[in-house]
Design a protein around this nucleic acid. Structure first.
Lengths: 357, 357
DNA sequence: TATCAACACGAAAACGTTTTCGTTAAGAAT
DNA sequence: ATTCTTAACGAAAACGTTTTCGTGTTGATA
């Protein structure tokens, strides 16, 4: 039950000063070979490791980055975290995660907890409630305090910071295009209420693809689903909605869904009412998660490359953190005050499986 | 771009001492009402928040707990993290996560990074490689340094610490019992190589249930699958294995799988070779994840309550952390040196869905 | 008028580092 | 014999807190 050993204890034990110990351990040539060897041996014996907290306080940087996401029990966010952790670890950083649970208040509380010295910068995706309220003062506040933020996936133009986003628009265009090329003539869109930007963009992509192919969009074929209730009975509600939708529009021969769950559920409903996939109806979903790979039939999806998003976001943040070290030296004060920020667009990729011909 | 304000700055600005500011902000009655008001107003105006790192250094505790898990892109672990984060947050703690990726070395590296002052205690699940090597020195080392560990799910009797485990054995017994009660006479077991304790326990539960019902176990009906390759082609391999297995044993009318993926794949293969679920063959899987809820037919599963596991683990750890504060005062030195540790067993629950009658 | 308590505040240590700037002694140079 | 390097080390500040222990002033008491 021995506590971790400190420089002071080594110093006392070896009857030298703390400074000597510190220098010896870092291999400074200010210290004679004899004492250096003695100190290093002693330190190794007692498995000395510098205390991170003390280092953080001294260096005014913690070498850890804060992740703030709406939920963690979610395949996409898990993969993003995985990507972040990968490069963070490789570059000597730790990650500390906070969950907003889609709540505005929890988002703020979490940011305040972490912003008080615990981390060097944020990687985050905005909660739904915040997007609804359109209140971004907490982001501005932390940025103003000199703490960089990188946003991913759910971003917002009102905040000036680095961003990594999925090319939702073109992803949707590609998907719907594929359905058209595979012979679909009446393509339905399963989407959400569009206060979340990604949903809106995917909807726009759907419309754009139709227009490029000179197909008149038919509002009957667009089903906007209220996703505010995220509970267990949501699933039943969803099935009913889609069921009604399919019965009202028997001519549908293609479905583009803005997320995996909607796509899977559409397939389930379609099978239930006797439609064959992909013969009678083809389905493509956004987001390539576990469900898509294991559904029957397996689902053709638009992959967002969550891991790559995480990796890029982490690189962006760390690059900025480590360039800041030099900034005070530089003469360029506020050159390009805004356009300085990078917006990375990660291309989507269509993964063809059995739900399309 | 103003940095966060500190006590020192407030003190200088208001021409008082740092101690006065500190006391005023904590509402000490040592300070006159006048100055207290003035200082608090100023602090509020500049949005003063004490620096967490400095507090950590002073108090020798960080109020953050380290989570170390084999992988994060995994429904079960996500739910556990969710549970941990929930109670951690409620009790004023942050969580910092490390991933071992099932690697012994990464597990050690991560532990060393975090153990040097960054966290107050660990919640972890052991990596497969560590379980294979049976080398637990790093756990012993951190515990010896006075840092408590709570293990969950993948635990090991060689390490003395608090543990939270799933009742794998009884969960399996319950599942197989249910299959028997629902009329299955030839129940197959789909399991892994058994160096991971949970797999072994589930296998034992399967055997126990058979014995209790006076059914002679048939080794032909047990398929041990090599899960060392976790890559993309693993899925195809899995399907082939199960396919061969089913063709060799056409009498199988029930399947108990030790994880969700095996169960889902078994259903897929069964359907492919023309078996009706649950009429011809009933299936139960361990682990209640997303796949189970959305498969067709939906899968009856043994739920492990990942969230509850996380919550209990977090409570256990925090309880221990906060009781340690008092320990030095207590006269009971090393009373019950070993049996002091708690082993919580979380009961499983069978969630009946369409894959059983 | 000398003593005393109460009040209001400041100085300093401590947490564990790193780093700058002395300081001492020995030997070389003048 | 005096000055000057150089080698080898120590003292102290700094990061931002909290807390213990003074200390000076005031008004009341003896």
């Amino acid at each position: 039950m021995k506590r971790k050993i400190t420089l002071k204890q080594i110093a006392r034990e070896l009857e030298v000063s703390i400074s000597t110990v510190s220098k010896a351990l870092s291999g400074s040539k200010e210290i004679s070979e004899d004492t250096t060897q003695k100190i290093q041996a002693f330190a190794k014996l007692y498995n000395y490791r510098p205390n991170n907290i003390a280092l953080s306080l001294k260096n005014r940087k913690t070498k850890t980055i804060g992740i703030l996401i709406p939920e963690i029990v979610h395949h996409f966010f898990s993969t993003v975290i995985f990507g972040i952790e990968r490069v963070a670890n490789k570059r000597g950083y730790n990650v500390i995660v906070g969950l907003s649970n889609e709540s505005f208040t929890k988002e703020i509380i979490n940011m305040e907890m972490l912003a008080n010295g615990s981390i060097d910068g944020f990687i985050l995706s905005i909660s739904k409630e915040t997007l609804l309220k359109q209140d971004y003062h907490h982001f501005h506040a932390t940025i103003n305090q000199g703490m960089p933020i990188v946003m991913f996936d759910r971003v917002v133009s009102e905040v000036d910071c680095d961003k990594v986003i999925v090319d939702d628009f073109n992803g949707a265009v590609k998907a719907v295009n594929m359905l058209i090329n595979k012979g679909c003539e009446n393509i339905a869109l399963l989407t959400t209420m569009d206060y979340v930007s990604v949903g809106r963009l995917r909807t726009q992509g759907y419309l754009e693809a139709l227009e490029r192919n000179n197909i008149e969009p038919n509002s009957d074929l667009i089903l906007k689903i209220n996703d505010s209730l995220n509970s267990a009975d949501h699933l039943e509600f969803l099935e009913n909605e889609i069921n009604k939708f399919f019965e009202l529009n028997p001519n549908i021969d293609g479905v583009f869904a803005v997320n995996e769950l909607y796509a899977i559920t559409a397939m389930k409903v379609a099978k239930k009412i006797g439609l064959k996939i992909p013969e009678d109806i083809q389905v493509i979903g956004f987001t390539d998660g576990v469900l898509s790979k294991h559904a029957t039939p397996t689902l053709t999806t638009v992959s967002q490359h969550g891991q790559r998003i995480g990796e890029q976001a982490a690189n962006l943040l760390i690059d900025r953190l480590e360039s800041e070290d030099v900034e005070p030296d530089s003469f360029i004060v506020n050159s390009n005050p805004k356009s300085d920020f990078i917006k990375l667009v990660i291309e989507t990729e269509i993964i063809e499986r059995e739900s399309t011909k």
